[in-house]
């Protein structure tokens, strides 16, 4: 089934990067304050871009400004989620996609480590059981 984005229409977006509506600046300011909070109190923030009224091209302009950092990670859970650090350490761009690669939600996390990357505590016991199970299994003893 063809997806909407595949329909070949050329959208006249705004004149290049900086959009005429000026909606990008406020988001950058919000990120800046979140960073300041993170630095001072360690409190992390997450901005849900779906709640921001962006004109066509605004989002691209924002991502262009945020740029690419050192870390980029992919989480394969219920579809792919890409987590990329922007040029500003502590500011992460999280894009959740569904198994059909449609964008579910785009968020900007301002934190030391994005919540999805750190291993959930409950998984540790499962991991332990799984490893114990593997170690006690015959195949493990042969190759040890």
């Amino acid at each position: 089934m063809s997806r909407l984005q595949d329909i070949p229409i050329q959208v006249l977006d705004g004149q290049g990067g900086q959009s005429e509506t000026g909606n990008v600046a406020p988001v950058l300011h919000e990120i800046r304050h979140a960073l300041a909070r993170l630095a001072s109190t360690g409190e992390s923030t997450s901005i849900d871009l779906s709640a921001i009224p962006f004109a066509p091209g605004d989002e691209a302009a924002l991502f262009g400004l945020l740029g690419q950092g050192e870390v980029s990670a992919v989480v394969n859970a219920l579809g792919e989620t890409r987590i990329e650090e922007t040029t500003y350490p502590g500011v992460w761009l999280v894009t959740h996609r569904s198994p059909q690669e449609t964008v579910l939600s785009t968020q900007i996390e301002i934190t030391r480590t994005p919540s999805l990357l750190s291993t959930p505590a409950e998984d540790l016991s499962d991991a332990l059981d799984a490893l114990d199970h593997y170690l006690s299994s015959p195949t493990a003893q042969e190759s040890a």
Binding site: A51, H96, E122
Partner: peptide
């Protein structure tokens, strides 16, 4: 077979869908 992270992602997107703040 949904992993913990899968569940967390599910909650995050649901919050976004419900227009509730990520917190």
């Amino acid at each position: 077979g949904i992993s913990r992270r899968g569940f967390l992602k599910f909650c995050a997107t649901t919050a976004s869908m419900m227009a509730l703040p990520p917190s």
